[in-house]
Simulated scan of single mutants.
Amino acid sequence: HGWSAERIRRIGDLLLSGGLCRRVYGNGDGDGDGLAVENADALYRPLDADWLGSGALNADAADWRCRPPDSLSTIGEQLRCLMLEIQGLCISQDGRSVDYGKLAESEQFAAYRLLARRLQRVNPEAGSPDERLAFFINVYNALVLHAKLARGPPTSLWSRYRFFADSAYIIGGQSYSLLDIEHGVLRANRRGPGLLRAPFGRSDPRRRAVPLDRPEPLIHFALNCGARGCQPIRAYRAAGLRDQLLMAGRAYLSGDDAVRVSED
């Protein structure tokens, strides 16, 4: 169109800052499909080019473009507060049992589904390590609830793997499955049990969202995978996160379900 490379870069950066596109790195990614604009440093791709129809549980084209993108801290706190409301309404006092029928019909879950759409444009790289850690812990636990309502609980070993591999949200234009969140983000991109490799390859842009240089074992006391013997569902905040994780660990290990000491 006769535009200079500098003008293209400025337009791309403007769309990027508004959460309407993302940079695509790598040789030829997006070439020839009419969706990417190239400059010397990057390709720009409209945010919904890859994932509409992908099966991600928040991947719809409703009204996500009609508002400015949320900051990670803002949407993270709103998610935490909404999870607390859901916890009080549909989750047992010990945090281990969920009334899914009540959850499905609740105003809180309807509000949560609207909030989940807004994850499409949030920048998961923008917060502090503890903000990102708390955010992804809460997203993981919320996604498990959402996926069990949408897909039903897994009934076999294979369906359990597919449940965690396929249940996903679009966050900042990238797809994050439950496996991606647990092993890619929260375990500092380590290979999970039974997996052949780490979730994020060297050129995967999702690596930039990883808040830790090495795995934090305490996150396993915060994640609820939906099993009966799993840790209670709680909502975590960035401030004092390590103390919250330590408290969750102590509470879990003090229960009869976690540790049993024989008299011998």
Score class of each variant (00 low, 15 high):
residue 100 Y to H: 08
residue 101 G to L: 12
residue 103 L to W: 03
residue 103 L to Y: 03
residue 104 A to F: 06
residue 105 E to D: 13
residue 105 E to M: 09
residue 106 S to V: 00
residue 107 E to I: 12
residue 108 Q to K: 06
residue 108 Q to Y: 14
residue 110 A to R: 04
residue 112 Y to K: 12
residue 112 Y to A: 15
residue 113 R to K: 05
residue 113 R to M: 14
residue 114 L to K: 09
residue 114 L to P: 02
residue 116 A to N: 01
residue 117 R to S: 08
residue 117 R to W: 11
residue 121 R to D: 09
residue 126 A to P: 13
residue 126 A to M: 04
residue 129 P to D: 12
residue 130 D to A: 13
residue 131 E to G: 04
residue 131 E to S: 03
residue 133 L to P: 10
residue 134 A to F: 02
residue 137 I to L: 11
residue 137 I to G: 05
residue 139 V to I: 02
residue 139 V to H: 07
residue 139 V to A: 13
residue 143 L to Y: 13
residue 143 L to T: 02
residue 143 L to G: 06
residue 144 V to N: 03
residue 144 V to H: 14
residue 148 K to M: 15
residue 149 L to C: 14
residue 150 A to H: 12
residue 151 R to P: 13
residue 152 G to K: 02
residue 152 G to Y: 06
residue 153 P to C: 04
residue 154 P to A: 06
residue 155 T to K: 03
residue 157 L to A: 08
residue 158 W to Y: 03
residue 161 Y to W: 04
residue 162 R to K: 07
residue 162 R to W: 10
residue 164 F to S: 03
residue 173 G to C: 15
residue 174 Q to E: 08
residue 174 Q to D: 07
residue 176 Y to C: 05
residue 176 Y to P: 02
residue 178 L to P: 04
residue 178 L to K: 04
residue 179 L to Y: 14
residue 180 D to V: 00
residue 180 D to S: 01
residue 183 H to Y: 04
residue 189 N to V: 00
residue 191 R to D: 13
residue 192 G to I: 00
residue 195 L to S: 10
residue 197 R to T: 00
residue 198 A to R: 05
residue 200 F to N: 07
residue 200 F to T: 01
residue 200 F to Y: 06
residue 202 R to Y: 06
residue 203 S to F: 12
residue 205 P to M: 12
residue 208 R to I: 01
residue 210 V to R: 12
residue 211 P to W: 09
residue 212 L to P: 05
residue 214 R to M: 15
residue 215 P to W: 08
residue 217 P to D: 14
residue 218 L to Y: 05
residue 219 I to L: 11
residue 220 H to G: 09
residue 222 A to C: 13
residue 222 A to T: 06
residue 222 A to S: 06
residue 224 N to A: 02
residue 226 G to C: 09
residue 227 A to D: 11
residue 231 Q to K: 08
residue 231 Q to E: 14
residue 231 Q to F: 02
residue 232 P to G: 14
